[in-house]
Design a protein around this nucleic acid. Structure first.
Lengths: 257, 257
DNA sequence: GACCTACGTCTCGGTGAGCGAAACGTTCGA
DNA sequence: TCGAACGTTTCGCTCACCGAGACGTAGGTC
């Protein structure tokens, strides 16, 4: 399902390839499926899976293998994400209580958004975002904020490649996007009006740590009911308060990778 | 800092050993520290770290290595934890809004609690729990619930070993714990009155999935102000509602490992 | 300045862990 | 009854991995 270009010739490379071949919604995958996705030899995948199970990185199920709790534990020790998350949670809760809309916290990694937290109530908004998941920069509110307040070289590299059209509303003209980004830099707020998924509207504001823009928070709702303009004040207030704490604590700043 | 007994003779074993040698609060660890913690040869750790960086499982910092965002992404795909988490979040939020106290969601893994979620406001409760972290069963509210509603063999094995004393209030007499567990089974609620950490009080209730008790939720607060008895009703109501949803969705059930 | 220690990096020859072709038993559905 | 797909196991070859050791540097002590 994914092709990794680095080091498939080493054991470690093969093992990570297997682990990463699990998509975000997957439950248990049978051996043959892993063979298909990774392109590795059947015996190799079999042997490695055995070992990964012994190491508690995979778990055996009747229908195949799944990523195990050991990986969850390990992942939650990644310091950059965890530090930001622990700092942010009380603020995200504030925002949720004031609005009762879905709250996201996202960071930049490479040229994509990675969602670090998602807080939502019972009202189901069928948004494609998931914690630990990725989305493009140009069609999400958080992404556009990161684009606007991030490194200029990033802006250039994103604008130089063709932009993927996700919905009829996705901004794919580099000129329009560039203009939008400039406006976002001025206003400090970005919108996503069904640009990443139909029926979904978002607003986002930047979080500025001790060393520049590092992350963003957003509110998400269904296009009909959800009025993003109404929540701009609360969103920005939260973003500013959280940014202050980040700076005060000398937050090291989120660095992708 | 930790000794893993499996497969240190394979590359994969060594790599996981390195990754797991990061404790939960660690930022960046220098090479020498990793050598010390793992007991591996300097050149080996060096080589493996190089490769782990290339695979985006570690990140290079001026002061050493840290667990990278790639691990966070991977960890969030662990299906059992993620499935439970996504289902539970709206309910945990309800509970937080009603009480404004710290909410935990924990599951059983081996003979310990693993925290899957922690929701807290600005009021800092200096509790030792962290998402992805572990605590013993016998001295935490969630742990005692899991003990009470979990497999009888687990109960026996925990009671047969000497119980670690964490505070003067920790129940270390097997007889007393056994009695407490019986009471918990009857009442459906467990308390932790400064048994795991001084100044910390908790209440917990079980989550029962399609195939038996699989998890527990709890409320935590500072001993002085926090009155656990006042929140029992809200806690249990939330637990029941969430359990119902778990059963209705045929929640596969959390299985450790 | 001279000495020492600790650290990160790199080299190199020996060897055993890992490789993949192939065979095997089983369970499906055709 | 046949065939296809799957999980499992064997086996001999070979190359990726190992660890002793050397090297340059930084920092601390006398």
């Amino acid at each position: 399902m994914r092709d990794v270009t680095v080091g498939t010739e080493t054991v470690l490379g093969k093992a990570t390839l297997i682990l990463r071949s699990f998509a975000i919604g997957d439950q248990a995958l049978p051996l043959a499926e892993l063979v298909r996705r990774t392109g590795l030899h059947k015996a190799t995948v079999y042997r490695l899976c055995q070992e990964l199970v012994a190491l508690r990185l995979l778990a055996r199920e009747s229908s195949g293998y799944r990523l195990s709790g050991g990986l969850f534990e390990l992942g939650m020790r990644a310091s950059a994400e965890r530090g930001l998350l622990e700092l942010a949670i009380p603020f995200l809760l504030d925002l949720y209580e004031r609005t009762h809309e879905t709250v996201h916290l996202g960071v930049l990694d490479g040229a994509e958004v990675v969602y670090v937290s998602k807080i939502n109530g019972h009202r189901q908004v069928r948004s494609p975002s998931r914690v630990g998941g990725r989305m493009p920069l140009h069609c999400t509110a958080i992404g556009k904020v990161l684009l606007a307040f991030g490194d200029p070289s990033l802006r250039q590299s994103v604008l130089s490649k063709p932009l993927e059209r996700r919905t009829p509303h996705t901004i794919v003209a580099p000129g329009s996007l560039s203009k939008a980004v400039t406006a976002i830099r001025r206003t400090g707020v970005a919108f996503d009006r069904e640009e990443s998924a139909l029926g979904i509207t978002c607003v986002a504001a930047p979080l500025v740590g001790a060393d520049g823009a590092v992350a963003a928070i957003s509110l998400t709702g269904p296009t009909g009911r959800f009025r993003p303009e109404r929540h701009v004040a609360a969103l920005q207030a939260t973003a500013v308060a959280l940014s202050n704490v980040m700076v005060r604590r000398g937050f090291p700043g989120y660095r992708g990778g």
